[in-house]
């Protein structure tokens, strides 16, 4: 793993809250709130969080699909916000996205060959015969037969459609791929196939991934580093093995203890760290540490002062992270 590839600096994405006929702005929701992180070349950084945590909004802001309100994204040395439309289009070729639901992201009226060839043509990379050859190569790369090019998306199973989505993303030879819950909609046996494929492609094509997910088991398998998000902020970020072995944020511990393990003997002895209440709406973000109303460790300081991420390879935003080992021990199998 060599060097920073994508640098995200204090990225904020706010959406206005409007009221009345004139859509007067009465406030704002910070879906992503001053997030900084760096993604190293060749790694898979996983963003994990529950619905409303802002993980998808963060990814879209990083890709400049929906530009951030403030902060910046430096991609391979280039500040995306400083680019004009033409330059942005050129660099976009290198940033691609794979979506959760391959059904809704593939045009049902186009044949799979045309779907995969479209980005080649749009970016002026291949046309005619050369495009057809390239489509064949891409289909083989993702494990689909050559005749798949002649068929329509509905003729494929969910897993095969996800392969088509991956082939399309790879058509323009990107080096950075954002995969937004790419296996969440798939069956268990198919999920494993797609995870294996993503892993194989990363090694073969020297790709860098930002992998968005909510299933910690999947993330433990695919990620090299993991960032945990809660209400628009990263609360913990660390190397994969370190995060799973020594989680330091109470929220991370509760997520880990909530995820069931496919082994009845282990489950029989596990304790779950239950949280109070539900995730608040980002509109009503609690003061201080946003997690404090649900946190079993919260003290006065947590209600008043917002903790920032601190630490180098394993960073955590929590005033009480020294107490984490005891909390973890209480939630572990005996």
């Amino acid at each position: 793993m060599s060097g920073v590839f994508v640098e995200v600096e204090s990225l904020t994405k706010a959406f206005p809250i409007t009221a009345g006929l004139m859509r007067r702005k009465v406030g704002e929701v910070r879906a992503v709130d001053e997030v900084s992180l760096s993604i190293r070349r060749g790694e898979t950084l996983a963003l994990v969080g529950e619905s409303g945590s802002g993980k998808t909004t963060l990814a879209r802001a990083i890709l400049h699909v929906e530009p951030a309100t403030s902060g910046r994204v430096v991609f391979d040395g280039t500040d995306l916000a400083a680019l004009d439309a033409g330059q942005l289009r050129a660099i976009r070729r290198r940033l691609q996205m794979v979506f959760q639901d391959p059904y809704s992201s593939l045009n049902p009226r186009m044949r799979v060959g045309a779907i995969i060839a479209e980005p080649l043509v749009v970016h002026g990379l291949r046309s005619g015969r050369a495009a057809i050859d390239e489509v064949r190569r891409l289909l083989a790369l993702v494990g689909l037969p050559p005749d798949a090019a002649e068929r329509f998306p509905h003729e494929f199973s969910g897993g095969q459609r996800q392969r088509v989505g991956i082939a399309r993303a790879l058509a323009v030879t990107p080096d950075f791929i954002v995969a937004d819950e790419p296996v969440s909609a798939l069956d268990v046996s198919i999920q494993a196939q797609i995870l294996s494929l993503l892993e194989e492609l990363r090694e073969r094509l020297k790709l860098t991934y930002l992998f968005i997910g909510h299933d910690l088991a999947v993330i433990r398998y695919i990620a090299t580093r993991v960032a945990v998000m809660y209400l628009g902020r990263i609360v913990e970020i660390a190397d994969r093995d370190d995060l799973f072995a020594r989680p330091r944020h109470p929220y991370t511990i509760s997520l880990l203890s909530a995820a069931p393990v496919p082994d009845p003997r282990i489950e029989a002895t596990r304790q779950r760290l239950a949280l109070k209440g539900e995730i608040p709406s980002p509109v009503a973000r609690p003061a201080g540490c946003a997690f404090h109303p649900r946190c079993p460790l919260a003290v006065d300081r947590c209600r008043r002062e917002r903790p920032d991420l601190s630490g180098d390879r394993h960073a955590v935003a929590c005033w009480r992270s020294d107490e984490a080992p005891a909390l973890l021990a209480a939630a572990s199998p005996r």
């Binding site: 268990v188 198919i190 494993a192 196939q193 088991a217 880990l256 496919p262």
Partner: peptide, 16 residues
């Protein structure tokens, strides 16, 4: 053999 696990590292999944 095809489910990743949260409680232990897995070298390789064996998809059906």
């Amino acid at each position: 053999a095809s489910v990743p696990r949260v409680d232990r590292p897995l070298a390789k999944l064996q998809p059906i």
